[in-house]
Design a protein around this nucleic acid. Structure first.
Lengths: 206, 206
DNA sequence: CCATTCACATAACAAGTGTTGTGTGAATGT
DNA sequence: ACATTCACACAACACTTGTTATGTGAATGG
């Protein structure tokens, strides 16, 4: 039963939704043409009509993942340290949608690590994210909310912390409910704001 | 060409090595019977002789992964904070072997997140690791090397930090050479040792 | 010395995968 | 009104995967 209205754009959105559902339910490895087609109530012919090859669909799925992650409702309340906190909170799986998004991300790491092309893409993407955090760190430092130190290093540390927290929360959602995730992040940020009493210089290169 | 000596144990070690090589080279998703057999210079018949089903081989591979991770040469120099640092350093991909191990771990998360049985196993495993870290945190606190605070929360934070650092280092090994990983970890530990000057209480529950 | 067991190889099978070609009915332009 | 294009369905393909059945030569035990 073909579409009465040939709305290309709407159809593409249907495909997006089906791809998303499949990835959320069966992981990135479960992203198969027939699974998407079944979720869509169609056949593989539809997909090959929109995507010439499987790789094209995978790349589309990754774009979709990035886009949906980026277009998630973002907190953007303050400036400086508050903005940094918001940016980090946006990453955490605090809502079911964010949990889906993160689960898909993590499950895509398998394919990404085995594929050099995808791997460099991921590295670049995380580098961009780090740069953005770095700017927020620098802003917070100028406001005196964070002690001095290389913003890039502090940003890398913060991203590591949040990334790892994502992974732990995905594997043990009961042990890491949203409240505890926020608490852990706030504790981490609290230690960042504290001055360093030890002899170690923070983030100095040899 | 069958084995002249029927050394069951040695053969199993050969299988382990082949499984390891395959996972390191092609990721967890690439762990296929024929790939292992080819790496072993044998056929699938050998594997079905040792493992009744694919799942058995997967479980064996996960055991192997855990065992190899655990049996990696560990630093165990000091007590208290130094022991905690050692335990965290042991996780990081500072050596090629540790990088292999971590890459396999990360690539296995895809299958684990889609399989409830494996997922709970992973959650348990990370919980055990957290408990161990928690004890080291408590010991460091008793030595006065760490300020007071719920050891479990501090351990969870430290594990998150290291886990995330592992992921970043795997995707961008050039940007996260061993030296920088150690530096980032030491910076993190330095912030932990610093007293909290802010009004936030560290790790208090509501 | 011989029967049995072991440790595989070999080959086939069914299911699932991406891909390709052909058909077909609706929409569309003229 | 008609030819063309579009948006798929349908079916077959080559391939990979896990699984299973059968054979076979070496080790082994009595």
């Amino acid at each position: 039963m073909p579409r009465t209205k040939g709305d290309h754009e709407a159809r593409r959105r249907d495909v997006s939704e089906a791809v998303w559902q499949v990835m959320a339910a069966r992981g990135f490895a479960g992203l198969t043409l027939r699974a998407v087609a079944a979720e869509l109530g169609a056949t593989t012919g539809l997909l090959t009509h929109y995507f010439p090859t499987k790789r094209a669909l995978v790349e589309y799925a990754l774009d979709l993942l990035e886009q949906r992650t980026l277009s998630r409702p973002r907190r953007d309340s303050g400036k400086g340290l508050a903005a940094l906190r918001d940016g980090l909170l946006d990453i955490l799986p605090l809502t079911p949608e964010a949990a889906d998004s993160n689960r898909i991300w993590v499950s895509s790491w398998d394919a990404a690590l085995s594929d050099p092309d995808l791997s460099t893409g991921y590295a670049h993407k995380y580098a961009v994210s780090r740069d953005r955090l770095s700017e927020q760190v620098a802003a917070a430092q100028e406001l005196g909310e964070l002690p001095p130190g290389d913003p890039a290093e502090i940003a890398a540390g913060a991203q590591s912390f949040v990334l790892g927290l994502v992974v732990q929360a995905l594997f043990a959602p009961a042990a890491f409910p949203p409240q505890r995730q926020v608490q852990l992040l706030d504790d981490y940020l609290a230690t960042l704001t504290a001055p360093d009493r030890s002899g170690n210089r923070r983030s100095a290169r040899s």
